[in-house]
Design a protein around this nucleic acid. Sequence first.
DNA 1: TTGGTTTATATCGTTCACGATGCAAAGATA
DNA 2: TATCTTTGCATCGTGAACGATATAAACCAA
Lengths: 148, 148
Amino acid sequence: MQEQLKLENQLCFRLYTASRLITQAYHPQLSGIGLTYPQYLVMMVLWEKDGQPVNDIARKLFLETNTVTPLLKRMEAEGFISRTKGQADARQVIVRLTSKGRALEKEAECIPYEVGKAVACRSITPESAPALYETLDDLIQTLSVGGR
Amino acid sequence: MQEQLKLENQLCFRLYTASRLITQAYHPQLSGIGLTYPQYLVMMVLWEKDGQPVNDIARKLFLETNTVTPLLKRMEAEGFISRTKGQADARQVIVRLTSKGRALEKEAECIPYEVGKAVACRSITPESAPALYETLDDLIQTLSVGGR
DNA sequence: TTGGTTTATATCGTTCACGATGCAAAGATA
DNA sequence: TATCTTTGCATCGTGAACGATATAAACCAA
C-alpha cells in the first residue's frame, strides 16, 4: 500500500488524536465547575472581554455561529451568561457574563496549571513550547485564511 | 485576569483549532469519495490490514467502541465494509473491506498529497515535520497512557 | 422609497465523541 | 459444575461541529 495512506505518516491524525486526548484531560477539572471544554473556551473569551456579540466570540474560536449559538443557549440555560439584542445593531446578540459566570473565573484559575501537570511530557518543555506554538499558529493561520 | 486563562496561552486550544481546520481541509476530497474523516481513518486501518476486530480498530485510533460501532454501522450501510461475528471468539465482530471498500484505496491515494498542498505552511517543512510528529506522538503517548 | 445585497444570527439534519450503562461470551476460581 | 470476573461490543443520552438553509436587520444603489 501507499506509504502516504498509513496512519502513522499523517499529521492530521496526530492533531486529531492529541486534541481529543488533551481535551479529555481537561474533563475532570471542567466538569467540577459545570463546563464542557468548548464552553470553557467561550468563558475565557468573555473573561478577557465581557459583552461581545456572537460573531466576535465565534471568530476568536474559529467557529461558525451555527456551532456557537446552541452552545451559548446551553450556557445561558446554565446561568453562566446572558444573551440580549444589541441596541446599536438589532441583528447582533450581545453575550455577557452573569455574576455566576464572573465568579467562575476564580475557580478556573488553577485549571491550566492542573492540566499542565498531566500534560507534562518530555517533548514539551518551557524552552520548546514557543516553537511548537508558532508552528501550530502558522498552520491555523494558513488553514483559516485559505477557507475564507 | 490570569495570564494562564488567556486563549492564546493554551496548547489545547491550538490543537483543537488546528485539528478542526485541517480536518475541514480534507472534506472536499473525502466527500468526493463518500467518506467522512473518521471513516477515512477506519479505511486506512483496514487498507493496512484487512479483517480486524472492532477493538483493534478502536485502539489504533485511540477511540472507544461506543464511538466506533455506530461509525462502522454507517460504513456497512454505505457498502464499504462488512461486520461478521468472530468464529474463534463469538464476542468479537470482525470488520472486513468489501470490494467497494478495497477499490476506494486507489481513489484515496492522491488525498494526502492534495491536502498537503493546502497545508503547506512555512513552519512545517520536510525537515521540521519529524520533530513536530515526535512531539505530538510524545504528547499522545503521555495522555493515552495516563488515561488507562 | 423601492429593490437588491450583505451581514448577524438562528434552525435543521447528520455525524461524531464520550460518559454511563447493559449484555453476552469467555475465562478464572472455588 | 457453579459462580465470579473480565472482555468485547452495543445502546442510550448529551453536547458539540458543520454543511445547508432560513430570517430579519442593515446597508446600498437606482
